[in-house]
Structure formats: C-alpha cells, structure tokens
Amino acid sequence: MIPAAVGYVRADSVEAAVAALGEHGDEAKLLAGGQSLIPLMRLRLARPSVLVDMGRANDLRGISVDGDTVSIGALTSHSDLEHSAELAAACPLLAHVASQVGDPAVRHRGTLGGSLAHADPASDLPAAVLALGGTLVATGPGGSREIAATDFFTGFLESALAADEVLAGVRVPVSTGGWSYQKFNRRAQDWAIVGVAVAEGGAGVGLVNMGSTPLRASAVEAAVAGGAGASDAAASAAEGTEPPSDNNADPAYREHLVRVLTERALVAAGA
C-alpha cells in the first residue's frame, strides 16, 4: 500500500507553513509526525495534493511551565511528554496519557499537535486536554487566536482550525489534583474502545470514543461539583453521548463501559 502521488513542501516555521497552506489551498495537508496521516494516505482514505512538512519546525517543540500554565509546542512528541520530569510534576495526567498512546515507535514520531488537529474521537490525548480545560493556539495569516479545547472538536476528524491555520501550541493549567486515565482495549497498541480521563478529582472529565468527537462529560462534572460520590456521578457518564458501533462494541456496551470506567477513574482520582 503506497500513498497516491503527492506534492511536498518543507516548512520549518509556523510562518512558512501558513504561507504554504495559503498558496496550496485546502488540498494541502500539514504533516507533523505522520503517525495518523501516513496510514490514512496509504489506505488512500486521505489524498492530499500537497504535504506541508512541519516536522523540523523545532521552535514548536518543547514544554515550559510558567506560573499556573503549562505551554507545549504542537510538535512535541508523545515520547517527550511521557519522559518530561517537568510535565510529570506540573500535569501528571497529560504525561501519563501520552505514555498510553500507541507503542513506543509511534510515540517517538507522533506529536501532541498532530493528535489534536487530527481530532480522532478514539485518540487518547484530546480527551485529556478536554478534561484539563486546555486552550489551543492557532496561527493563521492574520496572526494567532486561542480556541478553548471545548470549542475545538467540531465533527468526526474535524476541528475549528481554518484551512490556512496551523495549530502552533497547547496550553493547559498546572493540574496536580487527583487524576486518572482509564483506557479499555482488548488488543495491545490498539485505540481505546472507551477511555475516560479525569482531572482535578472530577472537575474535568474527558471521554474517548463515545461519539463523533472527543467529548467532555459535563453531567459527571456537574454531579461531582454538586458533591455526588463517584458511583452516583459516574451513573450519568453516558449522558449526551452517541457512541459508535464497530467490531469491538455496540453503543449499549460502550455506555456500560463508560459508566464503569468513569467510576474507576473518579475513585482513583479521589472523588
């Protein structure tokens, strides 16, 4: 399986990438680590006319903590997140979730920005960034704007990014309160059949693979805020979701799983 013929532009900075997107229009596709895009291109489910390769835009790589905020460049790899002592101290949920993505080889190449921009409801990191109440920074021809994670995921594999915008970075609050990530799958290295990320003892709850986008479990968050225990709060975990049906699970089973996993996550997070 070989990708269809494609043009190629190397963009070593955000500015160069924005310019290339402007020039090539919406047939162009940004390439970061390629761990989602290249498989899709090989299956010819994605056939961009031009790849804009941002893989060497090194100023978009790195983690910094300033006061209450953790800033992460979009090209920071899952492996960098997993091994960062700074992130483990400031936001252990995100570091842990990064260590649960795919396998080590995938984590070496895959990037946080790529995973978020790909907007796959079955991916681990979007749910974590949702639970943490993160903010995404998008840069376009007119400058940069901030997009709350809750507004970022607009549809299946669709995000609020405009065709000429680049996801430059992600900010999450320093979060050292009770956290947990419960990922349920049956095969090694597979996507989660259902996953639940809990931040700050249940103040933030993100769901994996429970709809066409990564989701925030607002009913659970509200229940926790209202003083409900883990079991009562988790009972509403499937509220407002539209889980998919596939070889692994039908919607009813996913609704069951999400309640069980949410309760486990809340208990682990000390709710």
């Binding site: 390629g34 761990q35 290249i38 498989p39 070496h108």
Partner: peptide, 25 residues
C-alpha cells in the same frame, strides 16, 4: 498498516516504523 513493527528501524537513535514514515521526512 503500522501494526506489526517488522519494519522498525532507528531514526536518530529511536525506534520508528519505517512504513509509517516518508523518506523525505
């Protein structure tokens, strides 16, 4: 399909699946 790892090589010292990476990268 990026699943089996038979094509794993080291890129800058770290494992990578060479079927999930373009030569230009």
């Amino acid at each position: 399909t990026s699943s089996c790892g038979a094509c794993t090589v080291l890129v800058d010292g770290r494992s990578a699946k060479s079927c999930t990476m373009l030569a230009v990268q």
